[in-house]
């Protein structure tokens, strides 16, 4: 009963959004704006622990968190950027120090860190990532897994100068 109501609500919201997008698309001309910076996500900084160490792997591993770090505007890959990663996993809660670790991007701006399997917590299977080194503006991401059975998750950063 409620599920049906909710579907209708979702449908209404979706068609409303489509209408707005369509209408504004007619008025605003296409612009070559370049790559825009990634905004911090809601709840992204929850249980963040400043200064988590760079590690080869968080805990026993088995799950891969990966992504890219690029510069806003021209989209150039940023090498050597420190990304902190944490989540509720099979080995601990988000708040636990041993659930946190950091890694650096390679010359292509790609990072990849092995960690324990992420499991649903607070209603969703999700991870947390932070760029917090200061050269660029701090960004916190909170990607959600499409399925809690996934064994990898991606998150991408586009940073703007601090």
């Amino acid at each position: 009963m409620t599920a049906v109501l909710f579907n209708r609500r979702t449908l209404l919201a979706a068609s409303g959004a489509a209408l707005v997008t369509g209408a504004s698309g007619l008025r605003v001309p296409a612009r070559a704006q370049g790559v825009s910076p990634t905004p911090t996500m809601r709840g992204g900084s929850n249980n963040y622990r400043p200064g988590a160490p760079i590690v080869k792997r968080i805990g026993g591993g088995g799950f891969w968190m990966s992504g890219t770090v690029r510069r806003a505007g021209d989209g150039a890959p940023l090498a050597g950027q420190r990304i902190q990663i944490w989540a509720h996993t099979t080995e601990g809660h988000e708040r636990d120090w041993h659930s946190h670790g950091a890694t650096l991007t390679d010359e292509n701006g790609v990072f990849r860190l092995e960690m324990p399997q992420i499991v649903p917590a607070f209603g969703q299977a999700h991870g947390h990532l932070a760029y917090d080194s200061g050269d660029f503006k701090t960004v916190f991401l909170r990607p959600v897994m499409a399925s809690s059975k996934d064994t990898s998750l991606e998150a991408h950063f586009v940073l703007q100068p601090a």
Binding site: G44, N46, A121, F122
Partner: peptide, 22 residues
């Protein structure tokens, strides 16, 4: 829930949570 993850509960109580069910 508060003891488990205070910031998630603060987000929920202030209606700023990323999850609609909160």
């Amino acid at each position: 829930l508060w003891i488990t993850s205070p910031p998630d509960v603060v987000d929920a109580l202030t209606f700023t949570s990323p999850t609609p069910f909160s």
